[in-house]
Simulated assay, not measured.
Amino acid sequence: MPDRPSQPMMPSVILETERLRLRAFVDSDIDDVYLIQADPDSQRWVPLPWPGAPYTRADAERWCRENGPALRTSGGGQHWAATERDTGRLVGAFGLLRTDWQAMATELGYTLAPWARGLGYATEAAVAVSLWAIDQGFQRVELKAATANTASRRVAERSGFTFEGIERSAIPLHSGRADLACYSLIPADLER
């Protein structure tokens, strides 16, 4: 019987933009990861560690030390800690997840720090990560946001993603289920 091919893995890279450096998570990020993910506005849209459970510092430790790196090594995607280039302060977490290597499709996900909202960082990092994915040969990058999450929907639009429709009752949140607005970016979009 032929051997099954091993799961591809994204390369470990640092991405840089005008104001941001996106790199792997390290232990010194744990406290800020905890503050970002435990923030009520973050929890409203990204119910980590799962719906109904509060986010703890232990969850942040697991994320930085195990879960974040494991996504890349398992072939499931890639996560970056987004930091300000000038100060080194963590401003968010950005990643590619739910990667389908046969279809060459992946999904962009992120959470932004309360202290970094409204500064354009989410769009700047979303563009960098999406362009990097397409440069790696991905034919589709998806971005999904709860329909009521207008800030994330604006990020998708400002980043050049095309709205495709609504997935009904597609995500469990702490407050119940929500519909998802679905967006995509494909290589042909970059030619426009």
Rank of each mutant, 00 (worst) to 15 (best):
residue 21 R to W: 11
residue 29 D to S: 12
residue 44 R to E: 06
residue 148 A to H: 08
residue 37 Q to D: 14
residue 186 I to H: 06
residue 23 R to K: 11
residue 45 W to Y: 07
residue 185 L to H: 08
residue 157 E to V: 07
residue 58 A to R: 10
residue 174 H to F: 04
residue 135 D to G: 15
residue 51 P to F: 04
residue 38 A to L: 08
residue 77 G to N: 10
residue 125 A to R: 10
residue 85 R to H: 10
residue 110 Y to C: 00
residue 149 N to V: 03
residue 35 L to F: 09
residue 66 E to Y: 13
residue 189 D to M: 03
residue 32 D to I: 01
residue 58 A to W: 02
residue 114 P to S: 11
residue 135 D to L: 13
residue 71 L to E: 13
residue 71 L to F: 10
residue 3 D to W: 13
residue 168 R to W: 00
residue 156 A to Y: 06
residue 94 F to Q: 05
residue 113 A to C: 08
residue 163 F to T: 06
residue 116 A to V: 04
residue 38 A to E: 08
residue 42 S to M: 02
residue 139 Q to F: 06
residue 50 W to S: 15
residue 25 F to I: 08
residue 121 Y to H: 05
residue 14 I to W: 14
residue 27 D to H: 11
residue 71 L to D: 07
residue 98 R to S: 08
residue 57 R to I: 13
residue 7 Q to K: 15
residue 183 Y to M: 03
residue 70 A to N: 13
residue 112 L to I: 07
residue 29 D to E: 09
residue 35 L to I: 01
residue 27 D to W: 12
residue 63 W to A: 02
residue 14 I to C: 14
residue 139 Q to L: 14
residue 129 V to R: 05
residue 63 W to T: 01
residue 86 D to P: 02
residue 106 T to H: 06
residue 10 M to N: 10
residue 102 Q to Y: 14
residue 159 S to T: 13
residue 187 P to N: 06
residue 143 L to A: 01
residue 59 D to R: 00
residue 45 W to H: 01
residue 60 A to S: 09
residue 96 L to A: 08
residue 149 N to D: 09
residue 98 R to T: 02
residue 41 D to H: 10
residue 106 T to M: 05
residue 115 W to E: 04
residue 126 A to V: 10
residue 159 S to L: 08
residue 102 Q to K: 15
residue 159 S to D: 06
residue 121 Y to Q: 00
residue 146 A to Q: 05
residue 137 G to T: 04
residue 189 D to L: 03
residue 121 Y to V: 00
residue 45 W to G: 01
residue 44 R to I: 01
residue 52 G to A: 10
residue 20 L to M: 07
residue 24 A to Y: 10
residue 84 E to Y: 04
residue 74 S to T: 15
residue 182 C to H: 02
residue 190 L to H: 04
residue 5 P to E: 08
residue 186 I to S: 03
residue 1 M to K: 11
residue 25 F to A: 09
residue 72 R to I: 12
residue 96 L to D: 06
residue 184 S to A: 09
residue 111 T to E: 00
residue 133 A to M: 05
residue 155 V to H: 01
residue 125 A to E: 04
residue 70 A to S: 14
residue 112 L to Y: 00
residue 106 T to Q: 05
residue 93 A to C: 14
residue 26 V to E: 15
residue 107 E to L: 04
residue 3 D to P: 15
residue 133 A to W: 02
residue 23 R to S: 12
residue 64 C to H: 05
residue 75 G to M: 12
residue 22 L to Q: 07
residue 76 G to T: 12
residue 150 T to A: 07
residue 53 A to D: 07
residue 11 P to V: 08
